[in-house]
Nucleic acid binder design. Structure first.
Lengths: 391, 391
DNA sequence: GTCCCTTCTTCCAACTCGTGAACTAAGCCG
DNA sequence: CGGCTTAGTTCACGAGTTGGAAGAAGGGAC
């Protein structure tokens, strides 16, 4: 039976969660505003808030002028109640950042890694963790949790498959837990970037959205009904390997005609080369040059890319009916900065009228570094869900 | 603030719902089994069950032998506590069926319609409702609700857009409510067929699934985390108009290369015709003949169709990561009965290894008539969600 | 047939929680 | 300083779940 009972305790936890989430997500609020928004009674709000203040999660933050009556006292989540750490595991480096609960960066550590073996990564993440904790002068008990973002399929805090790192079945959270008492969460990098955009970037306010990431490869993060959708076994969102040209170009995944083979930077440059263009320097420089070129075959390749990407977007629009699509990834941003309007128009040609009219297509607002930020929200999500620190 | 408060009443309602859902979905259960499955205390289970029995929703249904102790009394939802009616609105007819709570058909009514105007449809649905109620000798107060399935986009019980009927912005539930006191629910036909398969057909037990429907056109119903996923504005699941051959065949939606243009029966026959095949009789006969032909160009067309359909499935597998894909629709069933294995193999060529390994591809188990059955579950869903009839 | 054992069901006192109403706090205005 | 308005708090009450004890219902042993 999947549904769970509800007890009096669940009720309280749930209400604490509602209040805490409200205070966190909708800025400083007064008790008064909370009673309106939560439809809880004023008595209960007072009661719950008193408890949260006593525990230190929430604090009063000045008051707001009233119109003749007692001024409302504003409440906010105490930024220094706890701290959170986010880590991004890449192929060539590990980046660790420490934030307060208001998500201000307090310390940062970068470790290059030579060969991304699990041992190496665990070592560097743990080192980075101690470094940032020490640098910010915080007790490690003050750290609510560590979120780790890895490019790959993650299920229940364990890496199932991370091709870029060459990992399979690595219980990363477990390995990390051996070296620290801080609770560890592991999740997929694309999802974490998506999470950061949803909370602090271009996705704010949306409940059904897709964050589409176009870099050398292509991926996405699905958000359904306000929370990340992961599918039956945590690998939903593999948008890059959607067949878009039946029987088309060979993709590195082995299949033919994947979106990634057409709009991933690698695929785009490859198509450019085949069309007679010259590709110099590293991928990113070459991509910028391609975008800036005004001669054939560059313009055709760019236009085609927009077309393919638009078809990929249209497939999302039709199938998922999101209210927003956020385009990110380094190649996606470069492309989007110059051609967003054309892209929007092209999507309209491939998508059904109604869902197309309901979606807004925008660019990511946060930089690539937002992965660690997104990972750091994992412990915060938990704090909000539990309505405080569970004793 | 999207999250809602919880009160003591919600707690009880929630627990009633858990118990009632358990009894309904997992067959006759004893109180003892309910305490284990719900992790509620035996006291609460007894208490809640007593209430449900007093109200008549639940009844005792014999007892089961024990091993020396007191035998357990089995509980079931009383099939005759209330009745539900499901209606399917098609282009040429309206079909209305009355079920008891065990979903046995007790009466059925078919009305052909000449021109499917809203007035005509409302009239026939209401007539059908009276007919089946009268035929089964039930008081209309005994009818829990009427579920209506329409092919089109439905939002908040109102038709937003039903192309096959030529309707736009028709508040169907409201119109029906003027003619009856029975609560009316309206929903999308594909979703209702999906719902029926999920509860009583090939989807049983799955929580993340896609019911893919291939008929003359192509659609799907998405099920995420145990319940139907509708997207931001209720039009999710438009799988048929996914671009699968960039720049390919013109689809009736106006776009190029939609899946529907390749695997919808109309598209398949059209391709057959273009390849030199002869198409006689109505669509269905012609489709059957095509499938049975062993000569060129028929075999090529069929093989290609399987390939395109497989790519469409693979896109679902990659993007949504379902545990099950249920293939239905008349053309889908015909195709699947003969070529399911080839289809499975082909999907493997287009999909990523891991999500492909996690999905099972099966055929619908219920007939086309299941649409009305699915629609009739709408009031039942509500009954279970509310934990009984709300007073 | 009687007694005991096992298993299921109900009853009861204790405890938790949210609510409404009365009450206190705090600022404004004249 | 007193009246007014709005914000927040206190308290008794009803509604709900729980664990444990008591009750009920069969089956088996003698």
């Amino acid at each position: 039976m999947e549904v769970r009972r509800t007890t009096v305790r669940d009720m309280r936890r749930s209400n604490r969660s509602v209040i805490l989430t409200g205070i966190y997500r909708e800025g400083p609020l007064s008790r008064q505003e909370l009673t309106v928004r939560t439809s809880l009674s004023a008595a209960s709000v007072s009661n719950l808030v008193a408890e949260l203040i006593a525990e230190g999660v929430v604090e009063e933050a000045g008051s707001v002028e009233s119109e003749g009556g007692r001024p409302r006292v504003l409440l906010r989540v105490a930024p220094t109640f706890r701290y959170v750490v986010g880590a991004e595991v890449g192929e060539t480096r590990v980046r660790v950042e420490l934030f307060d609960l208001a998500m201000n960066v307090l310390a940062r550590a970068d470790h290059p890694i030579a060969t991304p073996t699990p041992e190496e990564v665990v070592k560097h993440v743990l080192e980075g963790l101690s470094t940032v904790v020490a640098a910010s002068g915080i007790q490690s008990e003050q750290v609510l949790g560590l979120g780790v973002a890895v490019a790959g399929v993650v299920e229940d805090n364990a890496i199932v498959d991370a091709q870029t790192l060459g990992w399979e079945a690595v219980p990363l959270a477990e390995l990390l837990a051996e070296g620290t008492d801080i609770p560890v969460h592991v999740d997929n990098g694309a999802n974490m970037l998506g999470q950061a955009e949803m909370w602090f970037g271009a996705g704010r306010g949306a409940t059904d959205a897709v964050v589409a990431l176009v870099g050398s490869g292509v991926g996405s993060a699905l958000v359904a009904g306000g929370s990340s959708y992961r599918g039956a076994r945590s690998s939903a969102g593999e948008w890059g390997h959607m067949t878009i040209v039946y029987g088309g170009r060979q993709c590195r995944c082995g299949a033919l005609g994947c979106l990634e083979a057409y709009v991933g930077a690698e695929g785009v440059l490859d198509r450019y080369r085949l069309a007679g263009g010259t590709v110099d320097g590293d991928e990113e420089t070459a991509f910028v040059e391609l975008l800036e070129a005004t001669t054939e075959p560059a313009t055709t390749i760019v236009n085609d890319t927009i077309g393919y990407l638009a078809a990929g977007f249209a497939n999302l629009v039709n199938l998922v009916n999101p209210e927003r699509i956020v385009l990110g990834g380094w190649a996606g941003l470069l492309l989007g900065e110059k051609h967003l309007d054309e892209l929007r128009t092209e999507v309209g040609k491939h998508a059904l009228r109604r869902p197309y009219a309901q979606v807004s297509i925008v660019l990511c607002e946060l930089g690539r570094d937002a992965v660690a930020l997104g990972a750091a929200t994992l412990p915060v999500v938990r704090l909000l869900r539990d309505g405080g620190v569970v004793r």
